[in-house]
Design a protein around this nucleic acid. Structure first.
Lengths: 148, 148
DNA sequence: TTAAGATAGTTAGCTATCTAATTAAATATT
DNA sequence: AATATTTAATTAGATAGCTAACTATCTTAA
């Protein structure tokens, strides 16, 4: 392993740990029945204002396999947070939309997340986040391209 | 959500995606039977030169719950890559050590990881990794402290 | 027009991760 | 010395993620 290799390895190790710590902190404050993956989907519908989205599109949006998305959507549907119907444009396909219950659940999640986010902003120097964000975006974009 | 909140949220979103992409890329090149978690443990023994380590210490080292470590260690033991024995210093405890088979498996994993790491070094500007690494370390340390 | 190939989604089976609860042993307290 | 508390590890039962294999449908090509 060259020192460049070690550097790259170190970067991904740190990222793995931070992801784990952040996921854990966020999971703590979500309603008992909600996971980060599930919140992500509800939030996605609200933020982007999508009316309908197919499971395949959502899998693509979240960079997740289709069976994974299938599974997460079933849970959301079982809880009444999304509605899944046949896709009128494609007999193989389905369409997903968020329900009113889903919207209010999303609000509740956002409210819960406020506390740890505020903590984070209190403990982490703002310059650190400002410096690191564009670098992460750059790295993510490069890795995204490498995938294809 | 204030703009600071959005910044913090954006940072963790990027980190989540990068972690997923990197994990996926690494998993591809590990031997069929190996996972990143399992490789991490073998690598830990070699890098730090530990002879013995208790499951509880390993759980702490990797910031993972004890049942998680318990599970991963069982798999490694089943594959003959680590050895788990009673801890002579503590009747409740156990001791883990890496086996010769574990060492050569670790070598094999390192060899497989070389390719994607080299790719990464080819695609990602070295300054990006050099700039981002200390920032990530700083963020990780702060989050680690917040946990306690 | 029929057959081949691609795409949407699901099912099955795997690993990693978590929390809660359990067992056994060590430590502290009274 | 006896009891209570803490600690080590495991078991049970979740969710999220993956790949492989399957069904159904759509699209393309012979």
């Amino acid at each position: 392993m060259t020192s460049s290799d070690q550097l790259a390895f170190g970067v991904f190790t740190e990222i793995g740990i931070i992801d784990q710590l952040a996921s854990h902190a966020f999971t703590q404050v979500l309603p008992r029945s909600m996971s980060i993956a599930q919140f992500g989907i509800l939030n996605h519908f609200v933020r982007l204002g999508h009316e309908y989205r197919t499971p395949a599109q959502l899998a693509e949006d979240f960079q997740v396999s289709r069976p994974t998305m299938s599974n997460t959507l079933s849970r959301l549907e079982r809880s009444g947070l999304v509605e899944i119907t046949a896709n009128p444009d494609d007999g193989r396909g389905k369409r997903v939309s968020i329900t009113d219950k889903g919207r209010s659940m999303r609000e509740q999640c956002i409210a819960g997340l406020a506390a740890p986010i505020a903590d984070m902003n209190a403990q982490v120097p703002p310059e650190l986040l400002e410096k690191i964000h564009p670098l992460l975006t750059q790295l993510r974009e490069i890795m995204d391209q490498m995938r294809n």
